[in-house]
Amino acid sequence: MLTIHLTEQDLARTRIAPTADMSAELSLSLHLLATRRSEHRLGQWREQLGQRWKPRSAMLFDLFSATAVPEFLTVRPDGRDTAEATADALDRAGRHYLGALGRLRRLTPFARDLAAGDRRSRLLLGDLTAEYQTAAITPYRERIDARVAAEHRYRTRQLATAGLDEVLATLHPAVRWQRPFLHLPGARCPVELDPAGRGLLLQPAVFAPGRPVVAALETPGAQPVLIYPVPAGRRPLTDDRPGPRPALTALLGRTRAAALGILAADGPLSTGDLATALGLAPATASEHAGILAEAGLTAKERRGGTVVHHLTLLGEVLLRGGVEDAAQSASRQLAGGGEG
């Protein structure tokens, strides 16, 4: 268990990142590939990346372990700028990271040369990072930005209506907030971290692993960053589909039509995750989910202490617009419930 002790000064300085950190997204996406982590929501991204993949990009895996993610890989809008910035970023902190990685496992020749400050290896690292950015990050940059911006809007509303305690308590199912301690899973032995009055930057990330991670904790003068996954319920990164069809929206209402589309893309989802995806309070999302379930378009299922929602066959048919009888049946059952 990793525990972060947040004083009143830390809480006053804690903020929510308004934009994506593309350098973190690049490193985290590489970690996903290097550790062969399976992420259903990113399956299409992985498939599309395979069509642009350059075999030598696998050399970047040399910088990762199951628990170690390098923070010196730097993304810039222009690939050439990325190559130069990454080559320059491998300073003392980067070599310290590689030294620590060498204590976890044996370094490859490439990583060993980087740790030794070899100039040719540094330039190669810059080129590899730029090539990977072009294949894996740049084509999805706008969608990554959009998903992080949506999460920022949701958390900003939550902060204004319920306060920072509620934000911290709902960041992730595995995170526990017991003022003044934020408990995160991950460490094998109990570890307590002290931001020393710097607060936290809460950074949503599309490629974050299943649990939050802390970055920049030991960087002098920098604000520690708590990177957490964008909650389930967002559209897949590679989903280019338009919104619900006008006829479906007219039949169900905008919110319930959107809920069907979200469940089709990312379900099953808990009520909380569905609320996050829709930008609604959980009680309001639960009301809409109940109406859809009464109409036979969705079904509820209990998994442990959580109720999850998923599409039924009728819901799938109606969403695809394939059978007129399905729409008429749903219309009759929904006649009593107006859109809220």
Rank of each mutant, 00 (worst) to 15 (best):
S331W: 15
T298G: 09
L98C: 04
L128R: 01
T134H: 04
L269S: 06
V214G: 05
T67W: 12
P229G: 08
A58C: 01
H309F: 05
A12F: 13
S329D: 06
T284Q: 14
L114E: 07
P209Q: 03
S65K: 11
Q9F: 02
R13Q: 11
A208N: 03
V323H: 01
L30Y: 10
S331V: 00
L98W: 07
A299G: 08
T3H: 00
A160V: 01
E71N: 11
A34S: 13
Q44T: 13
A275F: 00
L123S: 11
P185G: 01
A68E: 10
P55M: 11
T249N: 04
Q48H: 09
G197F: 01
K300L: 06
L6V: 11
T238H: 15
M22K: 04
A327V: 00
L123C: 09
V214E: 10
A24F: 03
T14H: 00
T86R: 03
R56C: 06
G243F: 09
D81G: 06
V148S: 12
P139R: 07
R120E: 13
E25V: 13
R15K: 10
A149M: 02
F181W: 09
R105F: 09
V167D: 01
R143V: 03
D113Q: 13
T271M: 05
P231R: 01
R37N: 06
L6W: 07
V307K: 09
P109F: 04
I137K: 09
P209A: 03
L297F: 01
G102R: 05
R302K: 12
L318A: 02
V307Y: 10
V230E: 05
P209G: 11
R95G: 07
A174H: 12
L193A: 10
V148H: 15
A187K: 04
G279Y: 06
R106C: 15
G338W: 10
T276C: 12
D273Q: 12
H172A: 10
R302C: 04
P195M: 02
L123M: 10
R332D: 06
D78I: 05
G296C: 02
Y97D: 11
L269R: 01
G296A: 05
A100I: 08
L182Q: 10
I227G: 03
T298P: 03
T170R: 08
D194C: 00
L98Y: 04
R92A: 13
A205Y: 02
C189R: 11
R112V: 00
L125V: 04
L30H: 09
R245E: 11
G321Y: 08
G322W: 05
G199K: 05
R120P: 04
T74E: 12
L2A: 07
A89H: 14
T170M: 03
A196R: 15
S121K: 14
R120A: 12
G337W: 14
G50M: 00
L278P: 11
A136M: 05
T170K: 06
G199Q: 14
G296S: 02
R155N: 09
T306Q: 09
